[in-house]
C-alpha cells in the first residue's frame, strides 16, 4: 500500500520512516512525502493515483490541506483515495469542513502513532 504524507514540516518524513520502520522494511507500507498541497497534487499527477491513502496536514502555507482534500475528492476518479486529515487545530469548524469535503478520517496533532498504525492496518486489510 502506498501512503502519501503531506506536511510542510520536513521532519515528519524522518518521524514516519522511523515509526513505520518495520512496516517499511517488511514492504507492507510504502511512504511518499510531499511538503505542500501543490507538491502533493503534482505527485499524484505524475504517479497516476498510485497512492491509495493520503495523510494531510491542514495548516500549510499556500494550498491548505482542506483545499487539497477538495481537489482530490472532486477530480480523481472513482474510487478516490482515502484521505485522512491531520491538524494541530482540532476545532469543530475544521472537522465539519473536512467531513463535508469528504475526508475519511480526522486526526489531531500530536499524532497518536499507535492509533494511526491500527487505522492503516485496517485499510490494508
Amino acid at each position: 500500500m502506498k501512503v502519501l504524507v503531506v506536511d510542510d514540516e520536513r521532519d515528519v518524513q524522518t518521524l514516519f520512516e522511523q515509526r513505520f520502520r518495520k512496516e517499511i522494511r517488511d514492504g507492507q507500507i510504502h511512504f511518499a512525502f510531499a511538503f505542500s498541497g501543490e507538491e502533493a497534487l503534482q505527485y499524484m499527477r505524475q504517479n497516476h493515483q498510485e497512492a491509495v491513502l493520503i495523510l494531510s496536514d491542514i495548516n500549510m502555507p499556500g494550498m491548505s490541506g482542506l483545499e487539497l482534500l477538495k481537489e482530490i475528492k472532486e477530480k480523481y476518479e472513482v474510487p478516490p483515495p482515502v484521505v485522512m486529515m491531520i491538524t494541530a487545530y482540532g476545532d469543530v469548524d475544521n472537522y465539519n469542513e473536512a467531513m463535508k469535503l469528504g475526508a475519511d478520517d480526522f486526526l489531531t496533532k500530536p499524532v497518536d502513532f499507535g492509533a494511526l498504525k491500527e487505522k492503516l492496518k485496517n485499510h490494508i486489510a
Binding site: L15, Q18, R19, R21, Y89, K109, P110
Partner: peptide
C-alpha cells in the same frame, strides 16, 4: 502557541520513537 506546539510534538514524537528503537 502553534509555533511552540510543532517543535514540542517533534520532541515528544522523536523521544517516543527513540525508546522504541532502543527496544528494536
Amino acid at each position: 502557541a502553534h509555533e511552540i506546539q510543532n517543535p514540542l510534538n517533534f520532541v515528544n514524537n522523536f523521544s517516543e520513537v527513540s525508546a522504541e528503537l532502543i527496544d528494536e
